[in-house]
Nucleic acid binder design. Structure first.
Lengths: 116, 116
DNA sequence: CACATGGATTGACATTCATCGATATAGTTG
DNA sequence: CAACTATATCGATGAATGTCAATCCATGTG
């Protein structure tokens, strides 16, 4: 499973210098990948766009199923992924659940790219 | 159902989005999701980080397999995904293939989030 | 309380994906 | 040309994912 072979430096200038830079750790990469994975679905991007485009900045599930042409359980599933990723906020008022953008979440996500 | 008219894998110019339309179209969402899908894997994030952290800004496959602890075919596969997403540039010199960041690609991707 | 409604959860299913081993291709060297 | 090296591609496989139908939970209303 793990073939850790001793690679002798027989290659001089052929391959470039060893990049001993502070490379992204496996844990950080895993954590950042979760956010991008939440953004990697077109329907989830549209959900964010719809929520952002609403006048009051929030929308309930019943408003989101129709424009996406998806079933209610599927929309609810996507919304949960976006909430878990820290992009959306969920607030239940009465029977309805209102979803809104977490302030600064998109900007913070954009910052992840700069800090790669 | 959905008429895909201009589905071009070319690089998108995310600047100057009309922003007149209230909702991200299905085609735009699909296109943007491809870029985030390329970023949704921790190993690919680490690949970008390593390439970015290299002194000369480029790295060959032989430099990337070891720090990721992945097989050469797997690394080559991930690199192809990053190239297809427009994030990496591939240049073959002799036997080696050198990968480098596409200038402005990360910033442009960050802009996708603002134009949601 | 009985019933209706909005939303979340479960289970199933088909598709996609990440990974590896084997192999093919291209450039270099003897 | 033959051998070697670096990389890409192919085929297979196990895991993850998106979707839906059915169901469950919570909160209203008669």
């Amino acid at each position: 499973m793990n073939s850790l072979q001793t690679l002798e430096p027989a290659l001089d200038e052929a391959c470039c210098a060893p990049s001993g830079q502070p490379v992204l750790s496996a844990e950080d990469a895993q954590r950042k990948a979760l956010v991008f994975k939440a953004l990697s679905d077109p329907n989830r991007l549209r959900l964010l766009s719809i929520v952002k485009g609403t006048g009051d900045g929030e929308a309930c599930v019943c408003d989101l199923t129709e424009p996406l042409d998806l079933g209610q359980p599927t929309v609810s599933h996507h919304l949960k992924i976006l909430v878990d990723a820290g992009l959306l906020h969920r607030e239940k008022r009465g029977t309805w659940a209102y979803y809104s953008l977490v302030p600064g979440a998109l900007e913070q996500t954009a910052g992840l790219l700069a800090s790669l």
